[in-house]
Design a protein around this nucleic acid. Sequence first.
DNA 1: TGTATGATTGGCT
DNA 2: GCCAATCATACAT
Length: 198
Amino acid sequence: MAPALLGSLLVSRGEEGVAQDVVVVRLTEVEAYRGRDDPGSHGYRGPTPRTATMHGPAGHLYVYLSYGMHWCANVVCGADGQCSAVLLRAGEVVAGEDAVAARRPGVRGRDRARGPARLTRTLGIDRGHDGALVVGDAAPLRLHHPPVPLDPTTVRQGARVGVSGDGGDGQRYPWRYWIDGEPTVSPYRAGRPARGRT
DNA sequence: TGTATGATTGGCT
DNA sequence: GCCAATCATACAT
């Protein structure tokens, strides 16, 4: 699912449906997360209240607070009871420049949605969006297929950002996907070495 | 009830 | 490149 989401459009309807507030972001970078078999995932230690949405049916948003101050958003991809989601790491603002300028004064160009927390801020996503659908008329945020099919040869793949060793041997799952050459893709940072905890 | 830690960002050196 | 900000969550006591 993760590479298939690249090039897709994420559309936020404005506050109270005001057309002027609509913002559209074209996804350029995502990461896949699974459950029990993925040490880098919030679902690694089994379902908890926080990750309930991530363990639910596909098509909903899993939103969590990072570092006590940043919201990050995932699209849930697995069947109900499974744990599978794709973190929306970065994108390009393709519509709603004015709304974004008002929401993020001083931030311009490629940085407006370059990084998972910047993306949520630009789209106005927060805790209230956890569990919301990304399909259907009532959805506060909607996901659309790419207007033009993405050239599959431009998709790149590598280790996830900020995730320490995935396997016991320190290997890193190559579950980060991005569109080659896109300036909005966030810089790579390796995670801390796995800490001894069992 | 206490505490360590992040799927990050932005400012400063 | 280094580091503080800031707090819900998970887990230990």
